[in-house]
Design a binder for these strands. Structure first.
Lengths: 208, 208
DNA sequence: TAGATTGTTAATCGATTAACAATC
DNA sequence: TAGATTGTTAATCGATTAACAATC
């Protein structure tokens, strides 16, 4: 199903479609037209149809899209139909917050472990997890089928920690460290640079 | 200085330039050419020059860009030369983590207060702040020159809380609630939808 | 069937890249 | 001055929107 190449812009819109479909489902809507969805989402109907047709013809002429079916298709495309096991590196405030983020569980995203290099944090309870030392990483990743590592650590250790995790087989990095990771070709990172995001607001406050 | 209209794509790249300039400064680099910067950042030199020239000619032919000057200019454009006062709504894990986020202070972003609707959290110490009740919002905003409100709350109350804050004069919203805010024209929100971001990774794991 | 709405091709728009004259 | 590198215009590329034939 991944035909030719899907542009990054399209990929980044998929979770938003998924979110609106979830809302429609909660409203017990059975079907939705691209026209009606476009009004709700504030994008063009044309874009919705183009985006979806990158992955297949999920609609039906004269009818529109079946809400349940389309949501299931999007979930499948987004990889939400199979569970993913996640670890968090860094048990500071942010790491702890992410460990308890309830939105994940509902999407098959399971936080299996949390680690910290600081011995004084090791053993601390975080939700129903216990902070583990970095020395436990290798075995834990192997034994728990971990596919995503979250980096909730300062920028200085980020590169070497990422390299270590790569060595243990991790290929997907969710990076909150304020630095861009330089990873091998077969790995990918999604950056959440919080201060970059906040600067969009200070920019706007400054430049109207 | 905000000539014509700056595209969103350009605006979103500015913090990344700023970050690389900071690194160059730490390396005591005095000047940088668009060519050398392009190599470091993995973008084209042409794009760098185009982007910067939206705001003015900060370089010099035959020399390149002065690191200190360019960083200062970018900081000014991003509104980092004047302090911004921020409040955080929601003193859960995420709100607390954001309250303690040290990257902000260095950029003139000052967290002045944190609020929660849950009475059992009110009075709790978070760093050197104390959680305040929602009833204190109005006066606090007026007395502390608050320009940005961070929403670290569930999606259900997000719309009404944003409306309340708008009523108190807030025009910039940093939104972590998993919903898109519908704000009046003269306000702006920057969304940080964490699970949307994580889904970029599950997508990738699924579709290579 | 007729009406509605998709899937898809074509047209437009905007963003990125290339090229080069201006100039330090 | 000659060499280097910007600022900026022109060319290309890609993404968005419009249009409409296909079809449920």
């Amino acid at each position: 199903m991944p035909k030719s190449v899907i542009s990054d812009a399209v990929k980044r819109r998929l979770p938003r479609y998924y979110r609106f479909l979830t809302t429609l489902q909660e409203e017990k809507a059975e079907r939705i037209s691209s026209e009606e969805l476009s009004r709700r989402m504030g994008v063009t109907a044309s874009q919705i149809r183009q985006d979806l047709n990158n992955f297949g013809g999920f609609g039906q002429q004269g009818y529109g899209y079946n809400v349940d079916k389309l949501k299931a298709e999007l979930g499948r495309i987004l990889g939400l139909d199979t569970p993913h096991h996640i670890i968090i590196i860094g048990a500071g405030n942010l790491g702890q917050a992410l460990a308890g983020y309830s939105n994940f569980q509902t999407r098959g995203l399971i936080v299996k472990g949390i680690f910290d290099a600081n011995p004084s944090l090791v053993g601390k309870r975080v939700g129903d997890l216990e902070v583990m030392p970095m020395s436990a990483l290798k075995d834990f990743i192997r034994d728990n089928d971990i596919s995503i590592a979250t980096l909730a650590i300062p920028k200085e250790p980020a590169a070497s920690v990422a390299a270590e995790l790569y060595g243990y087989g991790i290929r997907a990095f969710w990076n909150f460290a304020h630095v861009d990771l330089d990873l091998p070709e077969d790995a990918v990172s999604e950056n959440v640079h919080l201060s970059d995001s906040l600067m969009q607001l200070t920019y706007w406050l400054n430049n109207g």
